[in-house]
Design a protein around this nucleic acid. Structure first.
Lengths: 210, 210
DNA sequence: TGACACATACCGACTGGTTGGTATGTTTAA
DNA sequence: TTAAACATACCAACCAGTCGGTATGTGTCA
């Protein structure tokens, strides 16, 4: 591979309408849903024109797929930046992650809820590309989380037989459910309580309670 | 008993377009989402005309509210009909309910998922009447479930301090999350596994495990 | 008994606005 | 010069909602 003189040939040279549209999609779709968000509205929120939209995305569906993939990238810092990721004990890292997710459940639902979770609810039966992209994003999250959980199982064992991936997926399930409940109530308190139940389950499972 | 020509003065005299529209809404909206379901489509699915639709509902939003209320009524048999509801032990009744919900997670997601959970994700920020109606439906479910849980707590106590309503809400949270995950995966297996985790949590909490 | 007034249930063509998408031009940077 | 990155104007299809009308049942009173 030859070193290129241009900073990045694939990156936008003018304004970066693509990135602005993806960010606008994350914000607007989480508030109004995918179908209820029009292309015009998205363009207005991103400060670009329709021409720019269809230059970067073949269709609204293609934007949905790209936004789901972008969501995965946006979630990556969650596993890298927080201080608890440097802890020696894998169970502490897993519990630290649960605490972090609980602490994020504050303010307006549209700000802390999951883009792919929202979109897949609407599109799972009508757009296979979008469903697959959302599935990939969620699966990636679960697989990453399962690494620490597996190490915790190896180190401590569990009171009942569970798999690391299964427990990671259950963690994600509780979070997705918590988002739905917070939206219904108009208050994230109920979501925090469910995550507290989840943490209690993990503590009991690993025998760290009482 | 004399066969009356007119069944009931308060009941629809001709076709019953209202009931057919509500049933069609439950089916179609769970598959495509609320916004993506057009009024024309709903009328076609129900076999009625647009005139009938707007005779019974002031707006599409009003249908959403009515359908959420109808969903509550549809869920009532869940707490009355199953054989386990006749068990003496309240914890057995609660566990029986969890088993029932797990057994329902089969086939296509659009057939076992929750109407109000789907709708509230889309409408929580854009329609307060719909949000409130969905909240009422979910709250009713939790309050009903909490009755058995409270009796179980009174009878057995729990290893950690929890409230009956809080545990009922967590049960609902796991189910809502399980629906999202099943939609993403295109397979209800992952949903059943999360409900299994929930049941294990309840068993550990009440000291019924090992 | 019957006739008239009224209410409810339903029909379907129509409308003004919005939708996703296209066709074609202009600017920008290498 | 060239190609990508935008912008502008436009379109056919579709959308929620309206409206004048029909069919049918119900209450009232002579």
């Amino acid at each position: 591979m030859q070193p290129s003189r241009t900073p990045s040939p694939s990156l936008p040279r003018v304004g970066g309408a693509r990135a602005k549209l993806l960010d606008a999609a994350h914000a607007t779709v989480r508030r109004k849903g995918f179908t209820a968000t029009s292309v015009d509205e998205l363009c207005a929120a991103a400060g670009v024109t329709k021409g720019a939209f269809f230059h970067h995305f073949a269709s609204k569906e293609a934007l949905g797929v790209a936004a789901a993939e972008h969501w995965t990238a946006r979630a990556a810092p969650l596993f890298e930046d927080p201080p608890y990721t440097k802890l020696d004990d894998p169970l502490d890292r897993y519990l630290g992650h649960i605490d972090l997710r609980a602490s994020m459940l504050e303010g307006q639902a549209e700000d802390f809820t999951c883009f792919v979770g929202t979109v897949v609810q609407e599109a799972f039966a009508t757009s296979e590309p979008i469903r697959a992209a959302c599935d990939a994003s969620i699966s990636k999250y679960c697989e990453t989380l399962a690494i620490d959980i597996q190490q915790a199982i190896d180190k401590y064992g569990t009171k009942h037989v569970v798999t690391a991936l299964g427990l990671a997926e259950h963690t994600q399930t509780v979070l997705q459910g918590a988002f739905v409940m917070a939206k219904a109530k108009g208050d994230p308190q109920i979501a925090r309580e469910s995550v507290a139940h989840l943490k209690r389950y993990v503590l009991m499972l690993f025998g760290r309670d009482s």
